[in-house]
Amino acid sequence: MSTAAISVEHLHVSYNGVEAIRDVSFDLGTGNLVGIIGPNGAGKSTLLKAMLHLIPRDRGEISFLGQSIKALRKQIAYVPQRSEIDWNFPITVLDTVLLGTYPTLGWFRRPGKRQRERAYSCLEQVGMADFQNRQIGELSGGQQQRVFLARALAQQPELFFLDEPFVGVDLTSEQTIIAILKEQQANGKTVVVVHHDLSKANDYFNKLLLINRELVSFGEVQDVFRPEIMSQAYRGEFSFMRELGVSI
C-alpha cells in the first residue's frame, strides 16, 4: 500500500534516552477517521508530533499519500492542545481562522479578500460567525476549539491532525466538531485525533489505534474496542475504569 494516506514504519522516539515510542508501524488508507487512544503517558501526543516531524525521532520512516512530509506539509492541518495556546494573544476570531490560509499563500503574500471570505465561510460552518470580531480569549473552551477547527478547514488540507480536541469542551461543541470531522472523512479526507475519553471512542471513530509506548492494536473500531484487547493497553487502570461506568 504505497498510496496509504499515512504510512509509518518502525517509528522510535525517546526523550533524553528514555523510550517514549517503541517500534510503531501502521498503514492508514484515505477517508478514515482514526482515534489514537491509550492510557495517560502512553505517548499519544508524542506519536502525533513525531509523525509530523515536530519532535526528533530515533528511527522510522513516515510518508503521507506516498510522499515525504516535506512535499506535503501544506496539506497537513494541525490543531494543538488547548493548553499550548496563549489565549490572551491580541487576535480576533476571524483573524485566527485566517491563519489557516497562510500555508497556501507562501512567503510575503498577504491574505486578501478571497482568503477572508474563505475564513468567514469556515467560521459559519462551525457556527461561530457571530463571534468573528471577538478576541479569542473571550470565548468558552468549546467555542475556541470550534474556531481552531475552522482554521484547519480554511487550510483545505488532505490530512487533519487534532491533539485532544475535546478537553474542556462542552457537549454541543463536541457534537459539532465530530459531525464536521465525519463530513471531512466522507469527502475522502483523513482525520487523526488523539483522544483520551474511552466512553465515546466507538461512536466517533471508524478506526482505532491503541498504544501504550508500543502499538497494541490497530484496526476497525469493533476489532480494537474489545475488553481483551483494551486491557492489554490499560492493564491495572482498566478494571477501575470499568467500575467508573465506562462501558465496552
Binding site: K49, L52, I76, A77, V79, P80, E84, F89, I91, L99
Partner: peptide, 8 residues
Amino acid sequence: FDATMSAA
C-alpha cells in the same frame, strides 16, 4: 501565536 501549527 501558534509555533506548533507553523512548524506542522
